[in-house]
Design a protein around this nucleic acid. Structure first.
Length: 296
DNA sequence: CCTTGAACCTGGGCGC
DNA sequence: TGCGCCCAGGTTCAAG
């Protein structure tokens, strides 16, 4: 799923029901997602109260009162949904999936709140997602965060920083921006969108945005602004979809969002006066959508 | 170091 | 209806 805005939307959707709730039981419907679930995960978190929900890059962080944090990465197809009530399944009980989707419910948080029980269910058909448990105080030592670049919305990302990272890079902009060590949280969709907004070709070598002296060239500030704006807009869109979603089925994952180039192959470019056509090209095994007419 | 390609897994869509 | 193929928002690892 999920690039940064989707994970942030999930966080905002889950926070009101999870924060302050007690984990009565953590039900693991299978022992592994992408990786084996940590040894003794259920026992370690059961009985704990949830202190808060945070996010770093595409990672959702569930902070517990005892200083432990549950880390959740949603991979390509992970989502959470909220169901009220205690639910029917109990440990050891044979489970009959009611729908084909339910068979991908892998982890269930049985929560106790003052206003009654409820479940937060993690569903992930492709199982590219994973969960881990670590000491919040030792977060920097966790492999998931080692070498992770700055958040795209925040003071650490600016043209000077990108100039440093892009200097002498022959790598195409598309791949350079997907690198989580450069900027943390961008994925295929928002990289395509940010490049379109800044009229930059995905194939252009990253180093061409930097002067010989290592200073940001004229176009780098526009790229930074486009990245910030595209992420901010998507989080905003997630917020509105959240209000609709919660009212419907309570599922939190992708949200409908309209993109300028992503998945619009063959459609007219939306750049004012451009007249070009959105084109799809495979770069490093991933689809890139861009307009060859206005992105140079 | 750099880059590409395959791998992990399931499901949906499309052409025949 | 069915089959085969291609595609998918992420990340990692091996190989060139």
């Amino acid at each position: 799923m999920p690039e940064l805005p989707e994970v942030e939307t999930v966080r905002r959707g889950l926070a009101p029901v999870m924060e302050g709730a007690r984990i009565a039981r953590l039900e693991l419907r299978r022992g592994d997602l992408r990786f084996p679930l940590p040894e003794g995960l259920s026992e370690k978190v059961e009985g704990q109260r949830i202190a808060g929900l945070a996010r770093r890059a595409k990672y959702l962080l569930i902070d517990l009162e005892n200083g432990m944090t549950i880390l959740s990465h949603l991979g390509m197809s992970g989502s959470f949904r909220i169901e009220e009530g205690a639910g029917s399944s109990t440990p050891g009980e044979f489970h009959h999936p009611r729908s084909k989707d339910e068979k991908h419910d892998h982890v269930i948080f049985h929560l106790e709140r003052e206003d009654g029980p409820l479940r937060v269910i993690y569903n992930d058909p492709r199982r590219f997602g994973f969960m881990d448990l670590f000491e919040r105080a030792e977060m920097e030592a966790h492999g998931a965060f080692a070498g992770l670049g700055p958040e795209p919305v925040g003071n650490a990302l600016d043209a000077d920083y990108l100039a440093r990272r892009f200097k002498d890079k022959a790598q195409p902009l598309k791949s350079a921006l997907l690198d989580q060590r450069v900027i943390a949280g961008l994925g295929n969709i928002y990289v395509c969108e940010a490049l379109w907004r800044s009229h930059l070709s995905p194939m252009r070598a990253a180093g061409t945005l930097v002067t010989k002296a290592g200073r940001p060239g004229t176009r780098l500030p526009a790229l930074v602004e486009a990245i910030r704006a595209v992420i901010a807009d998507a989080i905003e869109a997630g917020g509105s979809s959240l209000r609709d979603h919660i009212q419907t089925d309570g599922s939190l994952g992708y949200f409908q969002h309209s993109f300028a180039v992503y998945d619009r192959e063959g459609e007219p470019c939306r750049t004012e006066g451009c007249g070009g056509t959105v084109t799809r090209k495979v770069q490093a095994g991933r689809s890139t959508f861009y307009c060859p007419t206005c992105q140079k």
